[in-house]
Amino acid sequence: MGGQQITMHVEELIEQAKHVRNSIDTMNYWYEKKPRGNASPTIAAAQAALSHSVAITRLIWPNPPSRDRDGNKLTGEPLDRHRWIIDRGKMMRRIVGPVDEQTWILGNRRLRNAYEHFDEYLDNFLFDIDRGKRPNVIVDTGVLPRGAIRIDGEIPTYLRLLDPELWELSLIDEKVSLPQLVKEVLTVDERAREWLRLERLKPPE
């Protein structure tokens, strides 16, 4: 992988970090304007921040398929492409590191899956309700403290909830602290910008 190629990936990371910041600003705007009356745009902006954070996650921890559509192991150029992507991910982690996939929200694959495969999470959730494994107490969207509403004495499960006391975004059972997520995004953004600055100081080859 050449320097220009990795530079483009670093620039894309910086661009996605900018979108995260803009999305958080938009979320705050709608929340301050009218908290409960504007639940939908507030949640939408929070989810946009999560979406751009997931894009950063893909840049740092790519997960290309190791088999083709027929389930066969990759060979030839597809295998070369797979290895190239894995190597690119390692280079990105060296640039923005140290990062911990186990403790960082950006490294939380369950959260990434919950966002990218929300339909599957919703299917599993509703299936469990249908089979009596979970209470049928559901609220679609809310911007309020988690325990603010009780239905038949139960705190409902929210498909989407933004708790403004904790600034915690929930997608069914998966929760993310937005302040911690933004802190991580700003950290990798700062490291990426510093790498880019030093890279541009190098004399042309």
Results as ranks from 00 to 15, higher is better:
residue 146 R to E: 08
residue 132 G to K: 07
residue 113 N to Q: 10
residue 57 T to D: 03
residue 113 N to M: 01
residue 85 I to V: 15
residue 126 L to C: 03
residue 25 D to C: 04
residue 71 G to R: 13
residue 159 L to K: 14
residue 54 V to S: 04
residue 88 R to H: 07
residue 38 N to V: 02
residue 35 P to K: 09
residue 60 I to A: 09
residue 60 I to N: 04
residue 82 H to V: 07
residue 183 K to H: 01
residue 130 D to H: 10
residue 147 G to T: 08
residue 171 L to P: 05
residue 93 R to E: 12
residue 72 N to H: 15
residue 116 E to C: 03
residue 43 I to R: 05
residue 34 K to M: 08
residue 170 S to C: 08
residue 33 K to R: 15
residue 33 K to M: 04
residue 142 G to D: 04
residue 32 E to V: 13
residue 31 Y to W: 14
residue 60 I to V: 15
residue 125 F to Q: 06
residue 192 A to C: 13
residue 124 N to E: 12
residue 194 E to W: 13
residue 92 M to D: 02
residue 12 E to W: 07
residue 59 L to H: 14
residue 79 L to M: 13
residue 201 L to W: 02
residue 116 E to N: 12
residue 72 N to G: 09
residue 167 W to E: 01
residue 89 G to P: 09
residue 125 F to M: 07
residue 49 A to V: 08
residue 64 P to S: 07
residue 162 L to M: 05
residue 9 H to D: 07
residue 176 V to D: 00
residue 32 E to D: 14
residue 135 P to R: 14
residue 114 A to P: 09
residue 122 L to T: 12
residue 111 L to M: 07
residue 42 T to E: 02
residue 57 T to C: 03
residue 77 E to Y: 14
residue 17 A to Y: 04
residue 134 R to D: 04
residue 42 T to V: 03
residue 67 R to A: 15
residue 154 E to P: 03
residue 178 L to R: 08
residue 191 R to L: 03
residue 143 V to Y: 08
residue 74 L to I: 10
residue 133 K to I: 05
residue 166 L to V: 03
residue 11 E to I: 11
residue 109 R to V: 12
residue 189 D to Y: 13
residue 195 W to D: 11
residue 8 M to Y: 11
residue 51 S to T: 09
residue 92 M to F: 01
residue 177 S to E: 00
residue 56 I to Y: 00
residue 39 A to M: 07
residue 75 T to E: 08
residue 88 R to I: 03
residue 22 N to P: 05
residue 133 K to M: 07
residue 44 A to L: 15
residue 147 G to M: 06
residue 113 N to E: 05
residue 62 P to N: 11
residue 120 E to M: 05
residue 76 G to Y: 10
residue 132 G to V: 04
residue 5 Q to A: 12
residue 45 A to C: 10
residue 179 P to H: 11
residue 21 R to L: 05
residue 15 E to Q: 15
residue 105 I to Q: 01
residue 107 G to W: 06
residue 204 P to E: 12
residue 1 M to H: 12
residue 163 D to V: 08
residue 136 N to I: 05
residue 156 P to R: 10
residue 139 V to D: 02
residue 130 D to L: 04
residue 160 R to T: 12
residue 87 D to V: 02
residue 96 V to R: 06
residue 175 K to D: 00
residue 24 I to V: 15
residue 138 I to N: 11
residue 160 R to Q: 06
residue 56 I to A: 01
residue 137 V to T: 15
residue 127 F to T: 11
residue 28 N to W: 11
residue 129 I to F: 05
residue 90 K to N: 08
residue 113 N to D: 09
residue 152 D to R: 14
residue 182 V to C: 03
residue 176 V to I: 08
residue 112 R to V: 07
residue 38 N to P: 02
residue 83 R to H: 14
residue 81 R to Q: 13
residue 185 V to F: 00
residue 114 A to H: 06
residue 157 T to G: 01
residue 160 R to D: 03
residue 190 E to V: 11
